[in-house]
């Protein structure tokens, strides 16, 4: 494990974690709505959103942290569009799940 010289990578991984937790919060709200309005189909949307949040929290965030530490130590550029695209796509999917939860008729 490469230890960085200062706290910028740590601040960034914490930001990734907060975003993952935000996705889990949306998943919780959708799940609560699914149970409260007796629409089990919405549980699937909530489950997908929760899975995306867990992936961001447990996979994307630590992988990006290790990548940043490695590249800084090697004096290489740290820019990588893939994590940004994956995170944006995850939030878009969470929003689509939420739209389904809002629009689904009683």
């Amino acid at each position: 494990m490469i230890v960085p010289m200062e706290t910028q990578p740590e601040r960034t991984v914490l930001s990734w974690q907060r975003t993952g937790l935000g996705m889990l919060a949306v998943a919780g709200l959708v799940a609560h709505r699914a149970v409260g309005t007796a629409r089990p189909a919405l549980l699937v949307a909530a489950g997908i959103t929760a899975l995306l949040g867990l992936l961001m929290l447990g996979r994307l965030a630590p992988a990006r942290y290790r990548q940043v530490c490695r590249r800084v130590a090697e004096n290489r550029a740290v820019s990588d569009p893939t994590p940004a695209r994956v995170a944006t796509a995850g939030v878009v999917l969470a929003a689509v799940a939420a739209a389904a939860a809002v629009l689904m008729p009683d």
Binding site: R11, R18, V26, A77, P83, T88, V91, A94, V102
Partner: peptide, 26 residues
Amino acid sequence: YRFTLANERTLLAWLRTGLALVAGGV
């Protein structure tokens, strides 16, 4: 790299703003 990471955190802050609005809608 500090500029790149600051920009990445700004993107994540925008994504969380979006998530907060989505959560508000639900």
